[in-house]
Simulated assay, not measured.
Amino acid sequence: MESSMELTVHHHGTPHSFPLSNSATLQDLAAAIEGILNIPVANQKLLIAPKPGMQKAPFPPTALTDILPLDSPRFKITLLGSPAKAIADLHEQATSERKRQETRASALATARKNQPTASRSRGINTLSNGSNNYTFHRLLPLNYLPNPDRSLQFLTRLRDDAGIRAAMAKHKFSVPLLTEMNPAEHTTSESRTLGLNRNKGEVIELRLRTDAYDGYRDYRTIRKTLCHELAHCVFGPHDRDFWDLTAQIEREVEAGDWKSGGNRLTGQEFYNPGDWERVQSGEDEYVDECGWTGGEFVLGGLRDGNRDSGGTESRREILARAAEERLKKEGKKETQDDGR
Rank of each mutant, 00 (worst) to 15 (best):
M1H: 10
L7P: 02
H10M: 14
S21G: 13
N22R: 10
L26F: 02
Q27W: 09
Q27C: 09
L29E: 01
I33Y: 08
N38M: 02
N43T: 11
K45G: 01
L46R: 05
F59A: 05
P61S: 01
P61N: 01
T62G: 00
T62S: 03
L64Y: 02
L68K: 09
P69W: 05
L70T: 02
L70Y: 01
K76W: 03
E92F: 05
T95W: 14
Q101Y: 03
T103S: 06
K113A: 07
K113P: 00
T117G: 00
T117W: 11
R120D: 03
T126D: 12
S128D: 07
N132S: 11
Y134F: 15
R138G: 01
Y144K: 05
L145F: 14
P146G: 04
P148K: 01
D149G: 01
L152Q: 05
F154M: 05
F154K: 01
G163Q: 07
A167K: 00
L178C: 02
T179A: 09
T187S: 08
L194W: 11
L194A: 03
G195N: 01
L196V: 00
R198M: 09
K200F: 12
I204C: 02
E205M: 12
R207F: 03
T221I: 10
R223F: 05
K224D: 12
H228I: 04
L230A: 09
D241W: 10
W243R: 00
T246L: 12
E250V: 02
R251A: 09
W258N: 01
R264P: 07
F270L: 14
N272K: 05
D275Q: 08
D275F: 15
W276H: 12
E277N: 14
V279R: 13
Q280R: 15
S281K: 15
G291I: 06
G295M: 04
G311I: 08
T312W: 10
A320Y: 03
G331W: 14
